[in-house]
């Protein structure tokens, strides 16, 4: 098991994490250990994106998940749900203790997030390429109902291989949905290997711009930069926004970073759990 050299070369330098980012990753590990399985790499890459959204950007009320004026946040790459569960638990949508029940009988927390079951989950995702269309519908509904809610949709880089994503992008561009923000967790690795080898996405920013989006890129683990960029959303008052976040698959776990073998683990033993916690000792 080794880091993929192409993904490594194309990713931002992996800088140390602050206490909050480490704490959130430890919550993810609680769930991985409790469920003895899970998408490790895919859940570690979008944590700062979700952290900045829920801490600084989204208008939301954890005690009232159905509040109609809230901003909507859809994790379209549903397999990265442990990152979303960690944030939702941390924010008080449900107790952090529940994370340990991940994928267990009777749990509300499955291997993909379900709307109506998990407070704060806006749409059931897991089948890839669905979230952006749902987001387009929500953004249009907000416009129809004269709400100023915004809709944020987080997609994986492998996910945007799906043609449906680009159908949705056409629609968003046509309707000039300035209340819609497409976010790409661009960790450069999909299940089978480097995106550069499986299905090249470059030039990715140009693609979003060509579909009518105002698009920018950012280091998806740099909290200050993410805060600064999201504060400027919409990037253009007459167009939807796309933010390509350069991230590191497995971020925070040195032995897992950039390694496709860590996309998913179906046997997280107690021993492996210890290793994961040890890698996330606060510095």
């Amino acid at each position: 098991m080794t880091a993929d050299s192409v993904a490594l070369a194309r990713s931002p330098k992996s800088l140390p994490l602050d206490e909050r980012s480490i704490w959130l990753r430890r919550l993810v590990v609680d769930a991985l250990v409790g469920g003895e399985r899970g998408h490790v790499g895919s859940s570690m890459s979008p944590i700062e994106i979700l952290r900045v959204l829920y801490d600084d950007v989204l208008r939301h009320r954890p005690s009232e998940p159905g509040w109609s004026l809230r901003d909507r946040c859809i994790l379209s790459k549903g397999h990265g749900c442990l990152a979303l569960y960690a944030l939702l638990a941390d924010k008080g949508y449900f107790p952090t203790d529940l994370l340990k029940t991940f994928c267990r009988k009777g749990s509300i927390l499955g291997g993909h997030p379900e709307h109506g079951k998990v407070p704060g989950v806006e749409a059931s995702t897991g089948a890839l390429g669905h979230g952006l269309s749902i987001g387009v519908g929500m953004a249009l509904a907000a416009r129809m109902q004269k709400r100023d809610s915004r809709v944020f949709v987080i997609m994986g880089d492998g996910e945007i291989n799906e043609g449906s994503v680009w159908e949705a992008a056409l629609s968003a561009g046509k309707h000039k949905l300035s209340n819609l923000v497409a976010i790409i967790d661009y960790n450069k690795i999909q299940s089978a290997g480097a995106t550069a080898h499986i299905q090249e996405l470059e030039p990715l920013l140009d693609k979003w711009r060509a579909f009518g989006f105002a698009a920018e890129e950012v280091d998806g683990h740099d909290v200050a930069k993410l805060q600064k960029l999201f504060a400027r959303v919409p990037l253009d008052a007459g167009r939807p926004t796309a933010i390509v976040c350069h991230t590191v698959k497995g971020k925070g776990l040195p032995f897992a970073e950039h390694d496709p073998e860590w996309h998913h683990k179906s046997k997280v033993t107690a021993e492996l759990g210890e290793r994961l916690y040890a890698a996330l000792e606060p510095r």
Binding site: S68, H115, E122, A123, G129, H130, L132, S133, I134, G135, V136, G137, M138, A139, L140, A141, A142, M144, Q145, G163, S164, E167, A168, L170, S171
Partner: peptide, 22 residues
Amino acid sequence: YMEGVSEQNVIGMAAGMALDGA
């Protein structure tokens, strides 16, 4: 809405609207 030849998007879009009461 007339959204073009994009059935997958049209269904997802309808779902998004319905999740918000349409």
